[in-house]
Amino acid sequence: MQRLLNTFLSLSLIVVAIPAVATPEQNKESFQKFYMDRFSHIEKDDFANGVYALDQDARDQWEAMSDFPPFEDDLDEGEALFNTPFANGKQYADCFENKGQGVRQNYPQFDSKSGQVITLELAINNCRTQHGEKALPYKKGDLAKVSAYMASTSKGERFDIKIPNDKRAQQAYEAGKKYYYSKRGQLNFSCANCHVQNVGRKARSETLSASLGHPTHFPVYRMKWESFGTLQRRFDSCNKQVRAQPLEGQAKDYRNLEYFLTYMSNGLPVNGPASRK
């Protein structure tokens, strides 16, 4: 009997010890499963439509507006900027694989040379500075327009964010995950408090969207902004809402958060740029 008890206790310890550290892949599976179970009537790809996957009334209005998207002029400007040569004769296309066409689904990516997460917007500015141009201000303006144009060339491609077998990449991913689940600001809210635990519920008149699919449609044109904004501009809005101090554009914490959040949406199609309220 004693022997049986000892065996049982040993096995229990092993079972408890195994799931202590989940891999990014396991995290992604449980993250996506959470939303698929919570909203079993919604197709996985439809989460790429953000809040409009959950709120039919809002979706009807959004679809009616989609016949004449409010961002068309800005998107054309983004294309023109993308194709305008720098002073040295080089172009954005020279800095990206496949001449910058259809690459959105691979960003953010981990750069093993610098040991940093590189978002698409950071890569765009790196391209500029490499060719002697000034970096553009982050989060909105011309940078967001170029990024939106590049996203438009990836429409339908599926997100395929990689976390290479590099300790620094794992650390960046874990730091992003920690940021996402940590409560912050005077209101003591984490990203997950709204977008996981209370997803689909109302905050005042707004439906809280699922984080699955959050990065797929950025940069977005928000009516509130009357312009394109990057995902990090949206992080700012969330931080302000919980009374936390927003970070600088491309701050390490924001890039890590974007890395984690986009990895969680791996497999979903790129459908940016899109419009939002």
């Binding site: 449980s30 993250f31 959470f34 920690k178 689940y181 940590s182 409560k183 912050r184 984490s190 997950a192 408090n193 996981v196 635990q197």
Partner: peptide
Amino acid sequence: ENEEKNWHFNLP
């Protein structure tokens, strides 16, 4: 300090 210890309790 509190989140340093407890953030992981927010995981799904």
